[in-house]
């Protein structure tokens, strides 16, 4: 068997160089420059986005999707920008390129991620955690490391799956094969992409709360959202049952067991809307 610590170095090197991994779309770099320049106007930024038809379609589609839940139809990029905020829009453009990869490789994982995003947003609103939309984005990206495994380490990923079938827990299997788990892998790629620190810490600690230092509440939130969506059985991951759950998440987040029903009652209608959305996209892919 290969030495996991050697493999770990190799994985990190590959992610650092983005070998075989999606780079940020070039429009993001231009967008960054525009956003940083105080003289640029909203119209200028919207103009840039509108030059890219594919991205424009995605932005409008996502702004109109159930995930955001704006009751009115969003029909221009400028409108989407005002509603979502420019930072969310940036993250949206970035994740839409991930979406594409996830949806081709594994629709189940993508559905799981969208479900966790919706659940995380509900929890953030209930527990008054700041910027619920950014929290939802962390939900969307929490299993990014699995996408990395699927697209850049196909053979190793198959070995992980074999080990899981043989009875190993998914995290243990990942550690044996890669010397690093998907949470850390995803966070590491997010670092290369210069995403906000809060998102990175949440993703990194979503299976191990002891990894969170500064954003303990947010990390506990994502840990719980992941569990609740697994428990509901929405989408698919390498877990056949439930991922390990750390009850500290309930204390940190001040969630009482009696609140779980309220969460599911809010989540269920959202899952319906998301299912219509993902089914629609699936139809387009075939």
């Amino acid at each position: 068997m290969a030495d996991p610590s050697e493999k770990r170095k190799e994985v990190k090197k590959k992610i650092r160089k983005l070998e075989g991994l999606p780079a940020l779309p070039p429009i993001i770099q231009k967008l960054n420059a525009l956003i940083e320049d105080e003289r640029s106007s909203l119209t200028q930024i919207a103009d840039l986005i509108e030059k890219d038809q594919v991205i424009t379609t995605k932005v409008l589609r996502l702004a109109n999707s159930a995930f955001y839940g704006f009751p009115r139809k969003v029909s221009t990029v400028q409108q989407a920008m005002m509603l979502l905020g420019i930072n969310v829009l940036k993250i949206l453009i970035m994740t839409s390129s991930i979406f594409e990869i996830i949806s081709k490789e594994d629709v189940g994982l993508w559905e799981h991620s969208v479900g966790v995003a919706a659940c995380a947003k509900i929890l953030a609103e209930m527990k008054e955690v700041s910027d619920p939309q950014e929290i939802a984005t962390a939900g969307l990206l929490h299993d990014l490391g699995k996408v990395v495994q699927m697209i850049a380490f196909k053979e190793d990923y198959e070995e992980v799956k074999r080990k899981v079938e043989d009875g190993l827990s998914p995290l243990q299997a990942e550690l044996e094969v890669f010397g690093i788990d998907h949470a850390e892998m995803g966070a590491f790629l997010m670092m290369q992409w210069n995403l906000p620190e809060r998102l990175i810490e949440m993703v990194n600690s979503h299976h191990d709360l002891s990894r969170s230092k500064k954003y303990r509440k947010e990390s506990a939130l994502l840990h719980l959202a992941d569990l609740l969506v697994h428990a509901r059985g929405y989408g698919e991951t390498t877990y056949v049952g439930l991922p390990p759950f750390d009850p500290k998440a309930l204390t940190i987040l001040k969630v009482d067991p009696s609140e779980i029903k309220e969460i599911y009652l809010k989540l269920e209608p959202r899952l319906y809307e998301l299912k219509f959305f993902t089914e629609e996209l699936k139809r387009e892919m075939t």
Partner: peptide, 25 residues
Amino acid sequence: ELLEKRFSGVKDEFLLHVKEVLKEV
């Protein structure tokens, strides 16, 4: 049936509560 499968072997009190809530929902 799928709910039972997902929760098979679960003994934790909070998780069992989640299961009951899900059944109810």
